[in-house]
């Protein structure tokens, strides 16, 4: 895994941390605890939030809508759902099976998206506070 680059949102720091230079640039308060307010408003964190939202909001709405459609059709459009498609396999059973298929597809898509777009960004945000923990 590549080391996360320092964020552009904070002042430039020397390339190496040394013992005589406390980490003023890091988002840590006086006691060495992470400064959550500062992190929450940092560009890197806001970017992470945007990336998370960009996937989970549409994906959640999509699968819920698709599931509710299936349930409502089963309840109120039994005629349509019993139209045969392949032999005795009808629309309803096919749609039901497709619910399982789409669940697996969305799951894999989320796993892939997280690995490519979320995890690196999480590492970036963590780099804002983590120099000390990494040394320890």
């Amino acid at each position: 895994m590549t080391k996360a680059l320092p964020s552009v949102s904070r002042p430039a720091t020397p390339g190496f941390a040394t013992f005589d230079e406390p980490h003023h640039s890091l988002l840590i308060d006086g006691d060495g605890e992470p400064d959550f307010d500062a992190i929450q408003t940092s560009d890197d964190f806001l970017d992470l939030k945007r990336r998370v939202k960009r996937f989970i909001v549409p994906a959640t709405l999509l699968f819920l809508a698709w599931y509710v459609t299936f349930v409502l059709l089963s309840a109120y459009a039994a005629e349509f759902m019993s139209t045969p498609l392949f032999g005795t396999v009808n629309v309803g059973l096919t749609m039901g099976f497709l619910q399982i298929v789409t669940t697996v597809i969305i799951t894999m898509a989320y796993a892939r998206y997280s690995k490519r777009k979320l995890d690196p960004q999480v590492d970036k945000v963590r780099a804002l506070v983590e120099t000390d923990e990494e040394l320890a």
């Binding site: 959550f36 999480v122 506070v129």
Partner: peptide
């Protein structure tokens, strides 16, 4: 703030 940052990043 702590919960949101921690929830997403584990910090």
């Amino acid at each position: 703030a702590e919960m949101e940052v921690r929830g997403l990043t584990g910090i």
